[in-house]
Design a protein around this nucleic acid. Structure first.
Lengths: 330, 330
DNA sequence: GGTCGGCATGAAAGCGGTTGCCTATGCATG
DNA sequence: CATGCATAGGCAACCGCTTTCATGCCGACC
């Protein structure tokens, strides 16, 4: 049924060993023989069985990618970037979705570990300690958490950009609508804001932690309004939309009364009724860079010990931010 | 390094064959022995090498899933559904993204074919003939195109629901903003509308074909306005948002002046400034159902010849549709 | 001219499992 | 007590490929 290396060998009139060499170590066979083998392989439609190769070489040519939620546009973009880069190096990608459940992450890692050369973990929900305790036997590159080998976005700088933008528009009191307490991105963003605020002469008012959902923003809106800030930076775009939705219901104009800055720059942000000013995370690049790092570790050109790569982020100004109200109302 | 079946055999004091049987054919070994083997496997942390197993059984335990664009929320949901269902049956999923390029579909199919038991193809961009010419040697289930074994949504019924809704609101002239000419969903939707319109006493006005992007909707908007229809059904939600965005710029109120119905029900539709009435496609279910069908074909319980499964769709009424204007303006 | 080195190729082992075949054991039967 | 028959479990082959080792051949050198 399947055409094997033996079929090619027979067709080319050489031994299987020679076929194998012609394909994977071209300089170890005579040029003329190689030609003959390649022609034969082409003719009979030979495609190597990677599983069989992997059995002996110990390398599968596959990598695994675990994300919390494929339906979240942020992760979808990361997967897309990682996937595209993997194919450039002839790796195939197993994708697994944990459905935001921390518990299944170690299970999935273990389940995949035997069939991949390395693992990519995006925004793990499992604690760093528990993660370290999982013995997969394969290299792991983490995204969005500063551990061992990882790729992260420069959240601190992103927050500085956002705050500088608002400060330049005259905002003196700025709220921060936080994400989950356990999110390390959230911690980095808050820290970045706290560092930048004094330099910019802005008073930062953290508004607490909210679930990273539309509903989280809806819940935060009234708190933001009551606080009297003229601008809010929000943990992510989806939450920002929830916030703005409730603002509309309350008769609060964006950006007339309150300016709003999101994080991520998901596709929806550009298409919304009030296009959202946001700190664009390099989603595709994050996936690509993590894949690059993993591949470098796999071929030994990088030591996994303590490599942290940071990607730049940039503010995209759209229509949800405007100069601060001068006369204080309310 | 890796713990093999031999290590388990040694630990349990049996031969490798017995270990193999204890794990994959439990009733072929003595209950007590089985217990001992299982305990040993547990103790040494044995995890079978699926590649090795696949080599002899001819089954890899993997399936491939090819989509045009992971960053498109529609496909992301399909992948999520398929992936979740696959894991329930202990299949791992290779995901590949063609970046909307028809040419790479056959390449990817061929590249994956050797490492999977079957392939899932979502909304292929390649023609049915070219697809049939690709000899992967594995079963293929297609989504969103009525061919050989496939799973599709009941587009015709969805359009009937949408049109009935608009007719009930008093709309007598309804536009259809079409998707790509080559899209089979588009053809089915148009056909469904053409069938339903006479029965509902509605005049259907096809507005032409537009790219399935925000910009496509922007481009369609002026045509819709000029046509004088009081409602438009749009090929997908993204296009509908483009349409409504341009409506705002033109001072056309939704749903005051024109009602808009989308297709797909992507997450954004519920969160938009004007929440969109839309025909919800069963995205997750589509992925799940296709995976189920593939698995059934793989285990032989279904013959792949001419099985077409159709999933129901349903209209979700939000705020972008309202009764037709009674007095004719413009 | 004989020996040596290097190159191209073939033979065979083995990667980690599964499975057909066969043997040893235990039990029931005549 | 001898025989027959299940049943459990061991042996060994094999899946498709890589890789070590051995071999044959050639040219080059002393």
């Amino acid at each position: 049924m399947a055409v094997t290396i033996r079929d090619v060998a027979l067709t080319a009139g050489v031994s299987p060993s020679t076929v194998s060499r012609a394909l994977s170590a071209p300089d170890r066979v005579n040029a003329a023989t190689r030609e003959r083998v390649l022609a034969a392989a082409q003719r009979v439609g030979y495609r190597p069985n990677r599983a069989a190769r992997g059995l002996i070489t110990g390398r599968t040519g596959n990598v695994g990618l675990i994300v919390p939620d494929l339906a979240n546009p942020y992760f979808a973009s990361v997967v897309k970037g990682a996937q595209a880069r993997a194919r450039e190096s002839d790796y195939a990608v197993f994708v697994a979705d944990t459905d935001e459940e921390a518990g299944v992450e170690p299970d999935l890692m273990l389940a995949l570990s035997k069939q991949v050369d390395g693992l990519l973990l995006c925004s793990p929900r499992t604690s760093t300690e528990e993660l370290a305790a999982v013995d997969t036997g394969t290299p792991i590159v983490v995204m969005n958490r500063r551990v061992s080998p990882c790729v992260v976005a420069d959240n601190g700088d992103g927050m500085r950009q956002a705050l500088a933008h608002l400060a330049a528009l005259g905002h003196r009191a700025v709220g921060y609508v936080g994400g989950p307490r356990t999110s390390s991105s959230n911690a980095e963003r808050l820290a970045g804001l706290e560092t930048a605020a004094p330099d910019l002469g802005v008073e930062l008012r953290p508004m607490g932690n909210f679930p990273p959902l539309f509903e989280g923003g809806v819940a935060a809106a009234d708190i933001v309004i009551a606080s009297g800030v003229t601008a809010a930076i929000v943990h992510n775009d989806i939450v920002a939309f929830g916030l703005m939705s409730r603002f509309v219901a309350r008769g609060v104009a964006v950006p007339g009364d309150v300016s709003v800055v999101g994080c991520d720059d998901i596709a929806m942000s550009a298409m919304a009724h009030t296009p959202l000013t946001t700190v664009a995370m390099p989603k595709n690049e994050l996936g690509r860079a993590a894949m690059v790092l993993l591949i470098e570790i796999l071929n030994g050109s990088v030591q996994p010990h303590s490599v942290v790569r940071e990607l730049p982020v940039r503010l995209i100004v759209r229509e949800s931010t405007a100069p601060a109200r001068t006369e204080e109302r309310r």
